[in-house]
Write a protein that binds this DNA or RNA. Structure first.
Lengths: 345, 345
DNA sequence: ACGCAATATGGTAACGTTCCCACATGTGCC
DNA sequence: GGCACATGTGGGAACGTTACCATATTGCGT
């Protein structure tokens, strides 16, 4: 049981068993140069016999490529990011790359610490899903300065020279508002996260839809909340209800916020959707609430796939051009949280 | 912009700038041996000036330790495992270790492929959260054979010589059943996943509670379902309703299953909890459903922390004894999905 | 017979680090 | 003065791999 000192067989061990030189073994493994069928067989047999596993560390040292990418994200427990991670990882492992997970918990010192570690590990590239404050720009710069490819996936705003995958949040906002307008709503409250680019895009979309329909959109109907959390959704909904602007529908900046709003509405004795319609955003929790949330579907998994693809393009040097920007379409997912407003309300 | 060929400064570069030998730089960085205050200052200054980042790859090659651990799990998008991952990663990074994420999607060939990759990367240890069929035993053996410490966290049954962190599922089952009995229920349906150790422990717990209370528990009340998914929960609930054993409450093997059941009950025109009480398991989605699910809380994050701790103990050779088993307590989380049964039903 | 490919092999220098060893110095003590 | 011992320094081998180079040994055309 206490069998710690197990040495991994090396290329030399294989060579010894096969009765050839390490160079020959290297050639068989690397598949370059000339090797006789005879030697090849003996090397392969020796590898099997010893259970040889090539040492990726030594390999990386020599080749200067680790076949490893880092993923920096706020929290894995948020399904939005977990889905991106899943997409990333699927493409990465299909190309023989591994993913190092860095769940920063939004703490700046942890984030830069992770940055340092990834740099020391000499990852071949980095995907960022972090909200875009100044510190992220500095972080990204610390990577690009060293020639490391970086792709931003659903975080931050544009970073100079960095590829980016986002969703068409503005159109999402438009679709949500349009849907409500079509149902007959005219006073639509929006729960927007303060300082979030995403939220302001959603707002822009809503505004456009309302303007197109000739519906008024007083400032009172927008509530700024602190974060993309259920708690923030609760307080936001409470504020909205108390303002007396009497909305008949609410658009939340993500499903978690909508979830908080649903709770508050329930407490207030309001039935969803009869008394109040609610639309979520991102389709993470929407299918699990009661009533099920009508929401805007974001292709997070897809975004992860594409982000990985862009990154690998850069890493394997298949693309060296200007920064690219991929904008993914969003869709309205109709469930049970929207109905026409009560007449006479 | 096309500035790919950026060479990382090495210890030699630092030595050159500081005007000392590479050995001296090594001593300053490694903090061993003797170095004059003078040299130390110059080396530190040179490091800062060049933006030196030690090369973890070269370090690993020499030291034979990568400060990296692998985490094999079914899916990151399942919050149950994402929470474990979060715990793992928190402890790991606090100790200077990185986590390589391996979301296997339950596919066997991917799993063994990941195993190979982790072995090649020479990770220092591995945490497994995979269901316990034979292939997992072989996988675990492929690690332990090479002297790699392995910890199982909420997956599989006992593996010889491998540490393990689990929760007291049996007691969870007991608590759930007991709670329902106290509310006056006598016919309690259970949705159990076929072939799952977890589910059979939950069943054992239920049986014990029912026996203690002198309540009958006919086989009809147990429905075997295919997986821990919402879909499986739906079909299971349907089967239970059609059997005519007229349960007044349902215990599901996890929250997702309960979610499926809630949907079916709603369709069937049954009100939860008035017509049927429901108890979930694992507290992942419970707070987000309407009605909110009463469930059994599992300390997943905590489990991740402990698993990492056990693994690091082994890796850093602070523990070399017999396999340990940590059983975490569970708790009943009371929300709104349980009520006394209708009288006369 | 000769040259000149093509084929097959081994030697060896890197990659960037760690750490042991040898060699300076200096200091205190008999 | 000689010796032990602490202090400071540089040299160099190793970690396991890759890939270039030099050296066989063939076959084949002239």
């Amino acid at each position: 049981m206490h069998d710690r000192p197990v040495r991994h067989p090396t290329i030399k061990d294989v060579a010894l068993v096969a009765g050839v030189s390490p160079s020959t073994v290297g050639r068989v493994i690397g598949g370059y140069g000339y090797t006789s069928a005879e030697s090849q067989q003996r090397v392969l047999a020796a590898m099997r016999q010893l259970g040889y596993e090539p040492n990726a560390v030594a390999r990386s040292l020599k080749s200067k490529r680790t076949r490893t990418i880092g993923y920096l994200l706020p929290r894995v427990t948020n399904p939005f990011f977990a889905q991106i991670a899943e997409g990333l990882q699927d493409v990465a492992s299909a190309h023989g790359y591994s993913v190092i997970l860095c769940s920063t918990d939004m703490k700046m010192e942890r984030t830069s610490e992770f940055g340092r570690v990834l740099l020391e590990h000499r990852v071949d590239g980095i995907v960022l899903s972090l909200p875009g404050d100044d510190s992220v720009f500095k972080l990204a710069a610390s990577f690009t300065d060293r020639g490391l490819p970086v792709v931003v996936c659903h975080g931050s705003r544009r970073i100079h020279g960095v590829d980016r995958v986002i969703s068409d949040h503005m159109h999402g906002g438009y679709l949500a508002a349009k849907h409500l307008i079509n149902m007959g709503h005219e006073r639509i409250g929006v729960l927007a996260v303060k300082g979030s680019t995403t939220s302001s895009l959603i707002l822009d979309g809503c505004r456009k839809a309302l303007k197109d329909a000739g519906v008024d959109f007083p400032a009172q109907l927008t509530v700024e909340i602190a974060s993309f959390s259920e708690d923030a959704g609760c307080s936001g909904a409470r504020v909205l209800l108390m303002r007396g602007c009497d909305p008949t529908a609410i658009i939340a900046s993500n499903d978690l916020i909508a979830l908080g709003a649903l709770g508050v509405l329930e407490e207030a004795g309001l039935n969803v959707p009869a008394d109040m319609s609610v639309i979520g955003f991102d389709n993470t929790f929407a299918a699990h609430t009661r009533p099920r949330l009508t929401t805007i579907g974001i292709s997070t998994y897809q975004a992860g796939l594409i982000a990985a693809q862009l990154l690998l393009d850069r890493i394997e040097d298949n693309y060296r051009g200007e920064a690219r920007e991929v904008v993914l379409p969003v869709e309205l997912v109709v469930r049970g949280s929207v109905a026409p407003p009560r007449r006479g309300s």
